[in-house]
Lab assay of single mutants.
Amino acid sequence: NMECRVCGDKASGFHYGVHACEGCKGFFRRTIRMKLEYEKCERSCKIQKKNRNKCQYCRFQKCLALGMSHNAIRF
C-alpha cells in the first residue's frame, strides 16, 4: 500500500516516475499537456490530501521536486 509522494493520499501506481494518486497524476498530466502556468507562490505550501487543490503552484513545484517527469515512462 503506497502513499502518494505529492499529497499523501493512496497511490494508484507509479506515474511519471513517482508513486502518485489519480488526482496528482491527472494534475501533473494536465499541467504539462496544456502548458499551464500557475501564479507564483513564495509560501512553500504544505501539500496534503485535504488541501492539495488550494495552491497549484506549490503542488506542481512539489511534483517537479520529487522527480515527476513527462519522460519517465516505464519499460
Results as ranks from 00 to 15, higher is better:
G13Y: 05
G13V: 05
E42R: 05
K49Q: 15
A72K: 08
V6L: 03
A72M: 13
R59T: 07
I73E: 15
R52W: 06
K25H: 08
A11P: 08
R59E: 00
H70C: 08
G23L: 10
V18I: 11
K62D: 03
R5S: 13
K40Y: 10
C55P: 01
M68A: 04
G13S: 07
N71E: 15
A11E: 06
A20F: 15
R52K: 15
E42D: 08
N71P: 14
C58L: 02
L36N: 03
K25G: 15
G8W: 01
M68Q: 03
C21L: 00
S12A: 09
I73R: 09
D9F: 06
R74M: 12
N51L: 09
K25N: 14
G17S: 04
A20E: 01
K50N: 15
G13C: 03
R59Q: 08
M68N: 01
G67T: 02
K49E: 15
G26A: 14
S12R: 05
E3I: 11
K40P: 09
F28P: 05
K10D: 12
R43W: 07
C4G: 00
D9H: 03
M34F: 12
E42I: 06
I32D: 04
N1R: 06
C4H: 04
E3H: 11
K49T: 13
N51H: 10
K10E: 12
K62W: 03
C21W: 01
C41V: 03
F60Y: 07
E22C: 07
E3Y: 08
C21G: 03
F28G: 02
F27D: 05
K35I: 03
E39F: 06
F60E: 00
C21S: 01
M34T: 05
E22I: 08
S69G: 12
F75I: 12
K54C: 11
Q56M: 10
I47N: 05
E22G: 06
L36P: 05
K46N: 13
Q56V: 05
N71H: 08
S69C: 09
E22T: 06
S44M: 13
R52Q: 11
E37D: 11
V6C: 01
Y38W: 05
G8V: 00
S12H: 07
N53T: 09
M2S: 06
S12D: 11
A65E: 12
G17L: 02
Q56D: 15
L66R: 06
M34W: 10
Y16L: 07
R5A: 15
A20Q: 01
R59W: 15
C4D: 00
E37S: 10
Y16C: 06
N53Y: 07
C58R: 02
C7T: 01
R43E: 12
F28E: 03
R30G: 06
C41Y: 01
N53P: 04
M68G: 01
C4W: 02
K40M: 10
S69F: 07
F75T: 15
K54L: 11
Q56K: 07
C7R: 01
Q56S: 12
F75R: 13
C55F: 01
C63H: 00
A65I: 08
R5H: 07
C21H: 02
G67S: 02
N1D: 11
I32Y: 09
N51D: 14
D9R: 05
E39G: 07
F75D: 15
V6F: 04
R43N: 15
Y38H: 02
C24V: 00
F28I: 00
C45I: 01
A65L: 10
R5V: 14
L36D: 04
V18N: 05
S12L: 05
F28C: 01
V18K: 01
I47D: 09
C41E: 02
F14Q: 10
C7Y: 03
H70I: 15
L66D: 04
E39N: 07
L64P: 01
K40W: 05
E42C: 05
R5P: 05
G17K: 01
F60K: 02
G8N: 00
K50W: 11
I73C: 13
H70G: 13
Q56I: 03
H15D: 11
R52C: 07
C45K: 00
K54P: 11
Y38S: 01
V6R: 01
S12M: 06
H15T: 08
K62S: 03
A72W: 05
K25Y: 14
M68W: 09
Y57R: 03
L36I: 15
K40R: 10
M68H: 02
D9E: 08
R30P: 00
I47A: 05
R43D: 09
N1E: 10
K10S: 09
C55R: 01
N51S: 11
E39D: 10
F28A: 03
N53W: 09
K50S: 11
Y38R: 01
E39I: 08
K50G: 13
G17Q: 07
M34C: 11
A72Y: 08
F75H: 15
R30L: 09
E42N: 06
E3K: 10
C63S: 00
H70V: 14
K50D: 14
K62T: 07
I32S: 04
Y16W: 07
H70D: 15
F14C: 10
L66A: 10
Y16E: 12
G23S: 15
G26R: 10
S69Y: 07
C55V: 00
N53M: 10
A11M: 06
I47W: 06
V6D: 01
Y57N: 00
M68E: 01
R59N: 02
K40T: 08
Q61E: 11
A72I: 06
F28D: 01
M34Y: 09
I47H: 03
K50R: 11
R29F: 15
E42F: 09
E37H: 10
G23T: 08
R29T: 15
K10T: 13
K46P: 13
F28Q: 01
N71Y: 06
E22D: 09
H19K: 11
R52N: 10
S12F: 09
Y16K: 05
A72P: 12
K35H: 08
K62H: 04
I47K: 04
A72D: 15
Y57K: 04
C41F: 05
E42S: 09
M68L: 02
G8D: 05
K54A: 12
G67V: 03
F27Y: 00
C4Y: 02
H70S: 13
F28W: 08
R59P: 00
F14W: 09
H19N: 13
C7M: 00
E42Y: 10
R52T: 12
K54I: 11
